[in-house]
Amino acid sequence: MAKDLTESIHERQNILNNRYALQQAEEHLDLGGIFYQDEMVFTKQQVMSLFEISDATIERYISNHGDELKNNGYQILRGQKLRDFKDLTHGTLISEGTKTSVLGIFTFRAVLNLGMLLTESEQARLLRSRVLDIVLDVMAQRAGGHTKFINQRDENYLLASFQEENYRKKFTDAVDNYIEGSQWKYARFTNLIYKSIFQENATEYKKVLKLAEHDKIRETMYTEVINLIASFEAGIAHELELAGQKKGSKLTQKEAEKLFLDFEKHPLFTPLILDARTKMASRDLCFRDALHEKLEAYIQAVPEADFERFLGEKSRSLQEQLSDPDTLAVFKRLKDR
């Protein structure tokens, strides 16, 4: 989907939190700057020249988006820091502005941030386009060419998936033993779990992620979502068993559905559901360009730690993880329990 970086703080921050994309952008854009305290920085005069904008325009954006720009590296130099910076540049910045006692500087990250905000600058528009191309290239390169199963690059995914299979068996056994109906009841009550957690049934989820008919949706889910599904399955299996034993016969599907809805409302799950919805909505928009419309209110910027988790040095494809002797040893111990 088209990304309007000037309108969405989440989209801007998703790029600025991706250090791999920033490294490529800094290398390929070659914007110049001054090396200061181990990074490239830019004075306001340099930024004005870069984007072909006025001093008043920069000041307006700093005023309107000051917190965002400061969080991404914009800072004011005063006192000794300013004197050190002037010495570094041999005093060439004295003519910048009327206040020589303070000086605003932008890190490379803050320059990109400003470029994503500016609507008056053609140079900023071109920069946004190039940055988006770089982000796509970096994402594809580090994710092995596709992002459909980027969730599986999480080092915790395999263990969560393996353990969920055990809870899934307990859940399907409970549905079989304590709920009336045909084989279709498994899909129906599985969808109730999905809707409780992320407000979509299996068909809706597959459509959002553009999954093929044969794709298994749980193979695309993040560890936190899998763990929460496992908790639901284990808990509901227990509740079905208690209700069935108390009744002395199988529950009707209407009775079972009420049990599901009551279970969902337990306060224990409130923070876990919020966390799962936020992670699914935010990560899928960032990594898969997939918008869960029913979860749109939960979208946040993806933190830097998630880029490390799914694109960093510790992240590995499922095939690489399965070929790791240490990983296989863990699964053998679990299987032998």
Rank of each mutant, 00 (worst) to 15 (best):
M1T: 10
D4T: 10
L5V: 09
T6S: 08
E7F: 11
E7N: 08
I9E: 15
L16H: 07
Q23A: 13
A25N: 01
A25C: 10
E26H: 02
E27N: 04
L31C: 07
L31S: 08
G33I: 07
Y36I: 02
Y36G: 03
Q37T: 08
D38C: 03
E39L: 05
M40Q: 10
M40N: 07
V41A: 10
V41P: 06
T43R: 10
T43P: 05
E59F: 00
E59P: 00
E59M: 04
R60T: 12
R60N: 14
N64F: 01
N64R: 10
H65Y: 15
N71H: 11
N72A: 01
Y74Q: 15
Q75G: 04
L77S: 03
L82N: 07
L82D: 08
R83Q: 14
K86V: 03
T89E: 08
T92Y: 10
K99L: 13
V102Q: 13
I105K: 01
F106H: 11
T107Q: 05
F108T: 12
A110E: 12
L114I: 05
L118Q: 04
E120G: 01
Q123L: 12
A124F: 09
R128L: 06
V131D: 01
V135E: 12
A140L: 15
Q141E: 12
G144M: 07
K148E: 02
I150C: 05
Q152L: 03
Q152Y: 02
E155T: 10
N156H: 08
N156L: 11
L158Q: 13
A160M: 10
E164Q: 14
K169T: 11
D173V: 05
A174H: 02
D176P: 00
Q183G: 14
W184N: 12
A187Q: 14
A187L: 15
Y194H: 12
F198D: 06
A202Q: 12
E204N: 05
K207F: 09
K207G: 00
L209R: 09
E213K: 15
E213H: 12
H214P: 00
D215A: 04
K216C: 02
I217A: 13
E219G: 02
T220H: 14
Y222C: 03
I226S: 04
I226F: 06
A230Q: 02
S231I: 09
E233T: 05
E239R: 11
L240M: 11
E241G: 06
L242S: 03
L242G: 00
Q245K: 15
K247Q: 11
G248D: 04
L251Q: 07
T252L: 14
Q253W: 03
A256F: 03
K258E: 14
K258V: 15
F260I: 06
F260G: 01
E264G: 00
H266T: 07
P267C: 09
P267K: 09
P271A: 10
D275Y: 06
A276C: 08
R277D: 04
R277M: 11
A281C: 10
L285C: 13
F287S: 12
F287P: 09
A290R: 06
E293W: 02
K294N: 13
K294A: 15
L295V: 06
A297L: 13
I299S: 06
Q300T: 13
Q300E: 11
V302T: 08
E304H: 06
D306A: 08
F307W: 13
F310P: 04
R316D: 00
S317W: 03
Q319S: 13
E320W: 12
E320V: 12
L328V: 10
L328Y: 02
F331V: 05
R333V: 12
D336S: 15
R337G: 09
